[in-house]
Design a protein around this nucleic acid. Structure first.
Lengths: 203, 203
DNA sequence: TTGACAAGTGACCAATTGGTCGCTATAATG
DNA sequence: CATTATAGCGACCAATTGGTCACTTGTCAA
């Protein structure tokens, strides 16, 4: 990703922090992995902690750049089919973008040891994702595509199970095919329950 | 919990592994915390790894003793109110039993670094919990209390969001009151959707 | 009483690890 | 061309940590 050494260090550090944890990350190996000596790191960062914070800053900036402002969010689908497609498309990104995968891994494994990780985990896993769909569902209800209900509750009921399966896939990536099927089945079931069959040609 | 030194070591080790991770766990401090010297640990276990495995063995045994056999499972509720009560009661245990909390924390933070943690996490967070409710919902459908649907799908749609909120509570226990409210609201909403209003006196 | 054994202690060891320092080489700058 | 800032290196340091060992103490059985 990054081209400067400073950026490359963050790339490598994200991988190592995610895979080995903060304590398990070894600056010698980290540097050696990119053909550097450990002391070279100290030209760019003050300490291990400094690298950790820089990784986090970059992570948060990345998150904001993708989901931060309302303009970045997808426009509400015009039909239930579009909702399905949109969901699977967002999921495809979420499940395969190396950086996002590592972010999740890092947040999960360090959430109890680092304050920033703790708060970011709640944002990323729970509230952030939910809010996106709250707006989408609210609009779809206004448009009569979705059954009238509490959009916030539906968004939660929709995103939480998907998030669980994404975590499952992070943990056991060899089961990806099966997991995607389960997500598709869940989304279809959800749409069958909450989609307005009058506007769509019934199930 | 345990009274023998061997058991006490496991109690302390579970706490330390959960809070500090495997790498972050220090045998000196672990021993000192229980008024022992580090070398005393080696009278009971061969190595740090040996302690880790013993903690895990005990965790799995504990899990099996609670959820392992069908007889241990709750009998299906006779009404939607009973389902609500049963769920909140199980939740009360899950959210407050110190050992179970530490187990979750351990599984979450070590799932990518240890094979046993990986598999046990999937069982504990996903399939195990879901299977319990699959049986319950199937029976409730047979009894006409619940709308006919795929019990496995409903169990997943029911347990996954609750599990997410339990994780949230592990992470930010100071928000427990709010989280319990959210769970109650979710369960009530779920019942409103899937409960059979003919058998119950409608909403 | 004696001998065996279980449980515990503190000193010690070797490996690892975050961090510092002085030195070098390259490239930009006056 | 001389100078200076930048980026890199390897040696070194002190602290930490898993693990070993010789030794002590108390208990129980023969």
């Amino acid at each position: 990703m990054g081209n400067t050494t400073k950026e490359k260090i963050l790339d490598a550090a994200l991988v190592s922090f995610a895979e080995n944890g903060y304590k398990g990350t070894n600056l010698r190996d980290l540097a050696a992995g990119m053909g550097l000596s450990k002391s070279a790191l100290y030209r760019h960062y003050e300490s291990k902690d400094d690298i950790w914070n820089a990784v986090f800053d970059r992570m948060e900036a990345y998150y904001v750049s993708r989901f931060g402002s309302p303009e970045k969010l997808p426009t509400a689908p015009k039909s239930c089919e579009e909702l399905f497609d949109m969901t699977m498309q967002m999921l495809n990104f979420t499940m395969h973008d190396k950086r996002v995968i590592l972010m999740r891994q890092l947040l999960l494994t360090e959430q109890f040891r680092d304050e920033r990780a703790r708060h970011f985990a709640t944002l990323h896993f729970l509230n952030g994702t939910k809010e996106i769909y709250t707006k989408i569902f609210a609009e779809m209800m206004d448009n009569g595509i979705f059954r009238k209900d509490d959009p916030d509750m539906l968004a939660f009921a929709y995103t939480a199970p998907i998030t669980e399966l994404v975590h499952y896939c992070d943990r056991e990536p060899e089961k990806e095919a099966e997991i995607i099927q389960r997500i598709e089945a869940f989304v279809k079931h959800f749409i069958k329950i909450y989609g307005n069959s009058e506007k769509n040609h019934g199930e």
